[in-house]
Computed example of a mutant assay.
Amino acid sequence: MKIKILLAEDDSDFGMILKQYLELEDFVVTWFQNPEDILPVLQSDFNFHIGILDIMMPNLDGFSLAKVILKAKPDFPILFLTAKNQKIDRLTGLKIGADDYISKPCDPEELILRIKNILKRTLSSETITQYKIGSYILDTDKLLLSHPKEKIRLTIREKDLLLYLLKFNHKTIKRDDILDNLWETNDYFTGRSLDVFISRLRKYFQHDAEIKIQSLRGIGFEIDFPEN
């Protein structure tokens, strides 16, 4: 199966180089210099496997574009390109629902690795598709966390993190182990992004007081999901 990539990048030189490199890796790339041209595609033949969106674009920035795409395609994986090193940009992207980010100019091999890691999680088949977590039900196929009071659409990264935490129920997990296994890198920004995801999971489980994801300073997290 050919992997189809949606690329939104207004810089003509960088966009062309990136498109050509991705095509050398056997990806099928549809490149949009004007992000607004993507909007009609959402209503028709949107058959992409992953989106790579530049943040700083005229008319429609990458954050706004991602919100529109994820509203129509909630489980669509997105990787942000940013020319900035400001952590606010990175954390904003993660809060929107992006799966990853990479700074420009990016190392082509690192970009390919990040794309493949996302696709490995997105396209992998799972034998168990539903998990009972206290008063919640996790449906990994639909990326849906359901509770009688609300239904929450998860990102791929949120689902993967939650499944990883489930493996260590009633145990302590080291931060470094989570970062090494799920992010495959361990630096300041990935550590901060992990904190963002943990905070979001705590908020998602707010309707069940027995579910606890407790931070242990300098160590990691202690997980307590009720037995069913």
Results as ranks from 00 to 15, higher is better:
residue 220 G to R: 08
residue 130 Q to V: 06
residue 169 N to Q: 08
residue 99 D to P: 04
residue 97 G to A: 13
residue 160 D to Q: 14
residue 140 T to Q: 14
residue 37 D to P: 13
residue 89 D to P: 12
residue 48 F to H: 01
residue 5 I to D: 07
residue 118 I to S: 08
residue 37 D to A: 13
residue 217 R to I: 03
residue 54 D to K: 10
residue 200 R to F: 02
residue 77 P to Q: 01
residue 128 I to F: 06
residue 16 M to F: 04
residue 54 D to E: 08
residue 15 G to Y: 07
residue 150 E to H: 02
residue 34 N to Q: 14
residue 117 N to V: 13
residue 138 L to V: 07
residue 31 W to I: 02
residue 101 Y to P: 05
residue 180 D to P: 08
residue 179 L to K: 12
residue 182 L to R: 06
residue 59 N to K: 14
residue 162 L to I: 01
residue 26 D to N: 14
residue 3 I to D: 14
residue 125 S to V: 10
residue 158 E to P: 06
residue 191 G to H: 15
residue 91 L to H: 05
residue 37 D to G: 14
residue 206 Q to F: 05
residue 186 N to P: 07
residue 103 S to M: 14
residue 124 S to N: 15
residue 65 L to Q: 01
residue 6 L to F: 02
residue 164 Y to L: 02
residue 226 P to N: 05
residue 73 K to D: 02
residue 107 D to T: 00
residue 50 I to D: 10
residue 125 S to G: 15
residue 20 Q to A: 13
residue 25 E to P: 09
residue 62 G to S: 07
residue 88 I to L: 07
residue 125 S to H: 11
residue 63 F to Q: 02
residue 147 H to K: 08
residue 28 V to I: 14
residue 33 Q to F: 00
residue 120 K to D: 15
residue 53 L to T: 04
residue 1 M to Y: 08
residue 42 L to C: 12
residue 214 Q to I: 11
residue 71 K to A: 14
residue 122 T to C: 12
residue 39 L to D: 08
residue 145 L to Y: 07
residue 117 N to T: 09
residue 47 N to Q: 13
residue 145 L to P: 09
residue 72 A to R: 06
residue 96 I to T: 00
residue 78 I to H: 08
residue 137 I to P: 09
residue 17 I to W: 03
residue 166 L to M: 11
residue 88 I to T: 09
residue 204 Y to D: 13
residue 178 I to D: 07
residue 34 N to M: 02
residue 16 M to Y: 02
residue 143 L to P: 13
residue 98 A to E: 05
residue 119 L to E: 03
residue 11 D to V: 07
residue 181 N to Q: 03
residue 116 K to L: 12
residue 55 I to Y: 00
residue 41 V to M: 05
residue 15 G to C: 12
residue 148 P to T: 04
residue 85 N to D: 15
residue 18 L to N: 02
residue 67 K to G: 00
residue 150 E to D: 10
residue 106 C to M: 11
residue 78 I to E: 01
residue 37 D to L: 12
residue 137 I to D: 10
residue 5 I to M: 10
residue 175 R to Y: 03
residue 74 P to M: 03
residue 140 T to C: 11
residue 50 I to L: 07
residue 42 L to S: 07
